[in-house]
Write a protein that binds this DNA or RNA. Sequence first.
DNA 1: CAGAGCTTTCAGTAATTTCCGAAAGTTCAG
DNA 2: CTGAACTTTCGGAAATTACTGAAAGCTCTG
Lengths: 185, 185
Amino acid sequence: MVQPMKLPPLHQEFVLHFGEMGSRWGINRTVGQIYALLFLSSEALNADQITEALGISRSNTSMGLKELQAWRLVRLKHVPDDRKDHFTTPDDLWEIVRILIEERKKREIDPTLSKLRALEMQGPAGDDYSEARISELREMIEMMTDFYEDMARLETEKLVRLMTYGSRLAGLIDKVGGYLPSTKR
Amino acid sequence: MVQPMKLPPLHQEFVLHFGEMGSRWGINRTVGQIYALLFLSSEALNADQITEALGISRSNTSMGLKELQAWRLVRLKHVPDDRKDHFTTPDDLWEIVRILIEERKKREIDPTLSKLRALEMQGPAGDDYSEARISELREMIEMMTDFYEDMARLETEKLVRLMTYGSRLAGLIDKVGGYLPSTKR
DNA sequence: CAGAGCTTTCAGTAATTTCCGAAAGTTCAG
DNA sequence: CTGAACTTTCGGAAATTACTGAAAGCTCTG
């Protein structure tokens, strides 16, 4: 930390925490800090304000904002009578979660799913065991991503209801019965 | 890639892919490769076999295996009449998914949850907006992790049934009605 | 209890990633 | 069109992370 941040203690701690966690989340320290800062800020901030609040270089701020926009976690917002670009985070947390899941899926899962499909296409190329393992993996990933898509389609209110229903869901399904997929081949 | 791998083409491609994806998944290249290799292997492999198959150093293999064991993604398996340690991945994919979610939660979410709680404890320390934002975030994370725990408790068979039920779940909940939590404050 | 066979640790090097300041690029008011 | 205000790009320095070979550390067998 070259420059000290000038922020209220709460913001300061929160920002530093997101900075440290950044590397575990697959983003770097400053990107985490920028996000945290914007997350806690009730108004949109411009790049210079961010640069100053975090004590980082202007270009680093620019890079960080670019990356956060690529993640759709930060948005441009125009402030009347100000030529500078201002940035905010979406304020609906559910939206943020959806975005996070989708973007992580796009980066961390989709490429592998394509690869698995491609490997299966190539036809018999390994032993039976590894081929079976690859198909099984692909099926599992498809099932989970399909389920996520189904859930994502629901309105937030229904989703919340469903989640708070928790483990009782299982009983509900039992009553309805019916569909019985094969889990083991 | 210093040493060429000697593996069947299918394994080779799969292993290389996992290596490349490693960085996105928060593990390094060799760790990804080791996991991929074990995942496709019907028998447990020892460290020397891994070292040779991947063309990496013995110590690197040792480090990688240690990390994978910390993740609980790879296990020791004793092979009769062989003094060397042998390693495998769990073969139940559902178990692997559970482990992955739990470990990621532990590393990527739990520390933040603690931090948020601690910040709330410290009492009024910022503006109203940021305090509200922090509470809201904590509540959301709690709701999601609680839901996950509920789901994780279900037997695999029920879970599969539930997942394939997909969006129809919403209708089901509607019928039962009842619980109506407040989503917005 | 010696030492063969195996595993882990460690210190240094290599590779990668992050970050900065300077320069180039863009946009818009006058 | 010009230049002021702002943003992005770029080359290289600094920091971090990954990897290796060598040495140290275990743990059984005989």
